[in-house]
């Protein structure tokens, strides 16, 4: 059963009067529970594709359906609600809120969803323990390593149990060992919670570990390989 369905997706940008075709007619579906990497060189359109799927950007033409919602007809506030309730984001640069502790950063999503204080604290604490950050619960991002911050970002992305997690080059700022640990963690969450993971990456380790690898080139799918 597909959770993401993309049809004839085109995205053009106008950069200083020059038309840039970032995505040029992509068709693909992602099934629930997939652990998929989108790879390709810089400028191949992988981040643009991820942004459109995440409702952060609008396509020039074509359609993107996430779950049963067609993103092309949604307003910016509806997209904002969808991002809050259905999608978890993991960014390359961690992007935690610097004045909030690890626990508060994870709790933040639940707060936006209107979850009661006790429940959100319990759930955030539980997730942080699950990602191995029991001792870092009260620390501010500046007092944590890059790997720890990225784990908090993962915890923040999964705490509300979204259907999909979109990760834009999540291991790009991590050393190999930390990156591998993070991948193990995400893979485990994928298996245990049946959350769909969609990565953009040019990290060979991520490509190797992905269950499905979609290669993009010049805004089009160059290859689509399912390993399991």
């Amino acid at each position: 059963m597909s959770i993401i369905a993309i049809k004839a997706l085109v995205k053009d940008y106008d950069v200083n009067g020059i038309a840039v075709n970032a995505v040029r007619g992509i068709d693909m579906t992602i099934d629930k529970g997939e652990f998929t990497a989108i790879a390709g060189p810089s400028g191949s359109g992988k981040t643009t594709l991820l942004n459109i799927v995440g409702g952060l950007d609008y396509p020039t033409s074509g359609s993107v359906v996430v779950g049963d919602r067609d993103l092309s007809g949604m307003s910016s506030s509806e997209l904002s609600d969808m991002r809050l309730n259905n999608i978890g984001f993991i960014f390359q640069a961690y992007n935690l809120i610097p004045v909030l502790s690890a626990l508060e950063n994870v709790e933040y999503i639940l707060l936006l969803q209107g979850v009661s204080k006790k429940e959100r604290q319990d759930r955030a604490r539980e997730i942080l323990i699950e990602v191995g950050l029991e001792k870092e619960i009260s620390r501010l991002p500046k007092d944590m390593s890059g790997g720890q911050q990225q784990r908090v970002a993962v915890a923040r992305a999964i705490v509300s149990e979204p259907e999909i997690i979109l990760a834009d080059e999540p291991t790009a700022n991590l050393d190999q060992k930390t990156g591998a640990n993070l991948l193990d963690l995400m893979h485990e969450l994928n298996r245990k919670k049946n959350i769909t993971f969609l990565f953009s990456t040019h990290d060979s380790m991520v490509m190797e570990r992905a269950e499905r690898l979609i290669q993009l080139s010049d805004g089009m799918i160059a290859s689509d390989e399912k390993r399991r």
Binding site: S77, S80, R83, L84, N85, F91, N95, I97, I109, L112
Partner: peptide, 16 residues
């Protein structure tokens, strides 16, 4: 600017 963008991208509404 970037931080507020992140907050919005993870679902923080404009009113908040």
């Amino acid at each position: 600017f970037h931080e507020i963008g992140v907050m919005k991208s993870i679902g923080t509404g404009p009113m908040r």
